[in-house]
């Protein structure tokens, strides 16, 4: 009977208010991407701007079609997929190897190496953008996938996450394989990697989302506009006159959909469990 008191009522009201605050921009983005510019302008400020026009479903995709042909959006979409895949693949291979080595091998100066990695986590990529650009420029890698991807692959933070995970694998597992004559490489690929799928998924998702969302670095590396990823292309779209709001919103929706899928399929790997990712 307690359920209908004033406090509970206020609580629900508050939750609904927050729901509206958090949801309305995304709903508006999606709904506007299915309408004509005239419709958007006419309905703005009314509740109709948040409701798709169901009597006119056949024309929902029109802004998408116009946007794809006007801005060569398919190419930028492909670019984003390519860049993200290269970065994800590279960082999974490179960082898992290093994390495994630090977790299991007897390495001279291991303490110092780990301490250095922890210190390096403090400095974000963005703070040395200019210097990295000079290095990439010296290597003649501007306007290439490698110029974009290489600086993003080696990551002290991800090595650290891999290391923490690999440390939890029981020693006995490795030792018995070693007795059977397996090499370090075989133990890593045949035993360590298959039982570590969760950490590969978690880091893979984090890196994918990070590189999909990257904006400033691609803006610096690429001077050829046809190499821009979605993040840069969509901003150009928002500035190219005449601006059609429905096309812009279609562009933003297309940029969001892959991330949405990644989160839906990878849900159980990214939701925070009862820990703070091992950092204290």
């Amino acid at each position: 009977m307690e359920k209908f008191n004033v406090i509970n009522f206020l609580k629900i009201l508050l939750l609904i208010a927050f729901t509206i605050l958090f949801l309305f921009p995304t709903v508006w983005m999606f709904v506007s991407s299915t309408k004509s510019v005239a419709e958007i302008a006419k309905e703005i400020g009314t509740i109709h701007s948040f409701i798709p026009n169901f009597s006119n479903m056949s024309s929902w995709l029109d802004p998408y079609k116009e946007m794809f042909s006007r801005f060569n959006f398919g190419l930028h979409f492909f670019n984003s997929v390519l860049y993200s895949c290269v970065i994800v693949f590279g960082s999974l291979v490179v960082n898992s190897l290093a994390g495994y080595a630090l977790a299991t091998f007897d390495i001279p100066f291991k303490k110092y190496i780990t301490a250095t990695l922890l210190i390096l986590i403090i400095f974000p990529f963005q703070s040395v953008l200019i210097q990295i650009f000079i290095i990439i420029n010296e290597m003649n890698l501007t306007n290439t996938v490698w110029g974009l991807a290489l600086p993003h692959i080696g990551s002290a933070f991800n090595i650290f996450l891999f290391m923490v995970f690999f440390k939890k694998i029981p020693k006995e597992l490795r030792e018995s394989a070693y007795m059977d004559g397996a090499s370090d490489w075989q133990i890593f690929t045949k035993i360590a990697v298959p039982i570590s799928k969760p950490i590969f998924m978690t880091i893979g998702i984090l890196v994918f989302v990070g590189s999909w969302n990257d904006y400033v670095w691609p803006l610096m590396v690429f001077t050829e506009t046809n190499k821009y990823p979605l993040s840069v292309a969509v901003n150009i779209m928002n500035e190219t006159k005449p601006i059609y709001l429905n096309q812009v919103m279609a562009g933003l929706t297309v940029t969001t959909i892959p991330i949405l899928f990644v989160y839906i399929f990878g849900q159980k790997y990214i939701m925070p469990q009862n820990s703070t990712t091992g950092i204290k």
Binding site: V94, A98, Y100
Partner: peptide
């Protein structure tokens, strides 16, 4: 250690972090 194959596990990460994390900081 340097001569062993174990070193190869660390090498790629060390090169990349050296060139794109430590070196830029020193350059700055």
């Amino acid at each position: 250690f340097i001569l062993s194959s174990k070193c190869l596990f660390l090498l790629p990460a060390f090169i990349l972090i050296g060139v794109f994390v430590i070196y830029p900081l020193l350059l700055a």
